[in-house]
Amino acid sequence: MIDVKDLTKDFHKTKVLRGITEHIDKGEKVVIIGPSGSGKSTFLRCLNLMETPTSGEIRFDGKEITHLHDREINQVRMRMGMVFQHFNLFPHLTIKKNITLAPVKLKRMDEAQAEKKAMELLERVGLPDKANAYPAQLSGGQKQRIAIARALAMNPEVMLFDEPTSALDPEMVGEVLQLMKQLADDGMTMVVVTHEMGFAKEVASRVMFMADGVVMEQNSPQEFFRNPKNPRLKEFLSKVL
């Protein structure tokens, strides 16, 4: 579904990604871990072109997307949902409007359809009573669940998660991971950058370790955690586990 070839990204003089070649299949749940500054967030953000790659190819359903015009990039983004570390809900809109804004303005649904869909999604994330609340009235965990619902409203084929639980108070991490697990069980293709090793073990179909702008090692979660080979990964795991 997503094919990445020799992807690099420089910020000014700093090489953040140094050549990544990867393939992500439909239905896969890829979890990316690694120390900060390893380029894992940048890699994720290249997939929906929030960052413009310096060189290399990204194919989405066989179509090269790194040299598209803005309008086509927007078409690609509609098919990839993204969830941010800091939620980025729209504070001036109600929860329901947060969810319906994109589908309505992008003419995917009319107002009534979008509202119906929003209520279904709110039911699914367990917050149907918050439809008319504003983001400021929600806890961090609730905000992130709404952010997930907002991304799902566009019926994306892939969901990208950029450290979705890193800004949460510890007691709220569980509710967000639970929702992500449900999403995984429903068959959603997911790429997740996270520090939650428990989530990686339980939900991932493949775990990827990034450091210094390259993928150093990847494997099924069982092998990855039981039998790490790369010394950097061994060191990293000894610190976080």
Partner: peptide
């Protein structure tokens, strides 16, 4: 916050 712009763009809004 630039995150507001990113959130809008990530949904496919121009």
């Amino acid at each position: 916050d630039v995150g507001q712009l990113e959130a809008g763009r990530s949904l496919g809004l121009n």
